[in-house]
Design a protein around this nucleic acid. Structure first.
Lengths: 314, 314
DNA sequence: TATGGTATCGATACCGGTATGGATACCAAA
DNA sequence: TTTGGTATCCATACCGGTATCGATACCATA
């Protein structure tokens, strides 16, 4: 018992015993067993992370941020991938909760009621990330996709675009893309504008798909002067199409993506996009989770909205 | 005890008791505690994953493959990011081992001796991934970076390239990039060719950096007719430079990257690259780990070499 | 000297499962 | 009827820590 206290640094151990214990631990190469510690103490050393995808660089960077934020906290991140499947998400959350994690980080605010209940009943900090358009179970951090969509619409209108098209991931899957779309559309309506073509993508958003759909949209209606894509991967495909066909982006047509991927920065044609603070969301979500763990700490805000940044070509 | 056996399906329970137990569990909403199970039983329900980065899409896709392969196995993946830091890698492996994971998946074959010993002493399956040029601690799965480099050199030579440059990530960090470089160089030597310019990248490989260095290389020596990049991110930057400056890729200059990222497929200029089976490495590594868990199973091969695929522009 | 407080330490009872070996009941064979 | 074997079940002892509370020693104060 004394050894346990000594190694953890929880008071009531004399300096000399402490030294002796540390030395002994050193000598026999003692390594604590966090499994036992988690089982015994109320607090577990695991933190659950549930995201819809990791082969998507956006969530991968969130994971990177989480790993970063967790550094030195003594917590180990356990991750699960839902593949945008609500059933799988519920199962995953359930099996994560079975491990009695210290906290849970989950992407999105729009879980079905059953899943929300699951989260609510778990008596640990729940941090929902990537989105702030909605009510968090506990706390959330991210940004408003609706506003991002609005903002981009405004920017395109300001550039003179009037005949818009949308190319985006299938909305059933990605509620955040849907919110951007809604925000964009709302802004168009305010300006008495409307979409002239809308193409939904089933399956993963790739540059290849983006390029193909861009070609299709422009051949359907060559008068289209702006395309809003649900993300940069698709938009890059659009840019490639324009390069290949000698279309002057920014002149003949405006392209707008979302996320502000590094690779769009140096693209030889001007692509509008919204830079999202992905890594920051990851690391801050950890901070919020850890803060929620402190019992008597002042409660932080329920909802943390980070800034996105509109990136427009010259 | 009977309930435990009933729920786990380990023999010696009568059909009726089994039914009763299941029903009761259902009714009270019993959820097992894998922490306790892991502590008690010899086998833990965690599997450790250690990668150098996740904000790199390549490793992110490996994680995706791992998550995939783990689906339904009842194991939870715990991940750690080393940031290409050997010290951090050792620490991470140590703290993962403290959790007594069922198995460990680690990127790379070239850990320092101390780390290798650590892995060796852990009496669990160790799966080293991404590389097969070297000796695994236990088993490994991946492909030969050396061969990939050789192959690309051969392909460029066959296309008539003679005056080569290399742009790549700082070798101290990425031993696999170094192996590709070595393979490439060996093949050049065989053809009595040599590099005319070599630029190393410190820090992350991005298209922006690739574009800048490409410009520099070509202004240093405009006669360069082929550039080998240590990965596609850099190579894409090179492609952007060529597009922006009206260089005819495949004519004036050959560009070669590595990984076969989706985004290179539809690039409006021809980029040579090597497609790597990242996702497959992830899912197969899990299979190998699980196979290693079965005590009396026939030992599989120590080293599994997957095929890469050379992708050349028309 | 008696009393009370503080610092330090250790015995005990869990945390929630699983391995083990014995207990019980039942049936067939001798 | 006795004996032995099989199927089923349960009591017990861990796994490796931590919370809790009591024990002890030591010191200052009344």
């Amino acid at each position: 018992m004394t050894a346990s206290r000594a190694l953890r640094g929880t008071g009531d151990v004399s300096p000399e015993t402490l030294k002796k214990v540390r030395l002994a631990a050193q000598q026999i190469g003692y390594v604590g067993n966090p499994l036992a510690a988690s089982l015994s103490g109320k607090r577990s050393g695991l933190i659950g992370v549930v995201v819809p995808s990791v082969s998507n660089i956006v969530f991968a960077e969130v994971l990177a941020g989480i790993a970063d934020g967790l550094d030195g906290s003594g917590l180990q991140p356990v991750f699960g991938v839902t593949d945008y499947d609500e059933t799988r998400e519920a199962e995953l959350i359930q099996s994560m909760l079975a491990w009695h994690p210290a906290a849970l980080i989950v992407a999105g605010l729009d879980q079905p009621d059953a899943t929300r209940n699951l989260l609510q009943r778990a008596d640990i900090p729940i941090v929902q990330i990537m989105d702030t358009d909605g009510d968090p179970v506990d706390v959330c951090i991210g940004f408003s996709h609706r506003d991002a969509g609005r903002e981009m619409a405004g920017a395109l209108l300001a550039r003179g675009a009037r005949r818009m098209a949308y190319i985006g991931s299938s909305h059933a899957l990605d509620t955040r893309a849907r919110k951007r779309f809604a925000g964009f559309e709302t802004r168009l309506n305010e300006a008495a504008q409307t979409f002239f073509d809308i193409q939904f993508v089933d399956g993963p958003s790739t540059a290849t798909v983006g390029r193909g759909l861009t070609e299709q949209v422009l051949s359907d209606d060559p008068a289209i002067d702006a395309i809003y894509y649900s993300n940069d991967d698709l938009a890059i495909g659009g840019a490639y199409h324009c390069i290949a066909h000698g279309l002057s982006v920014g002149q003949d047509i405006h392209l707008a993506g979302f996320n502000g991927l590094e690779i769009t920065k140096t693209l030889p044609v001007g692509l509008a996009t919204t830079l999202t603070p992905r890594r920051q969301i990851g690391s801050k979500s950890v901070e919020m989770a850890l803060a929620g763990l402190q019992k008597n700490a002042p409660l932080g805000p329920k909802r943390v909205t980070l800034q996105t940044q509109l990136l427009l070509p010259d």
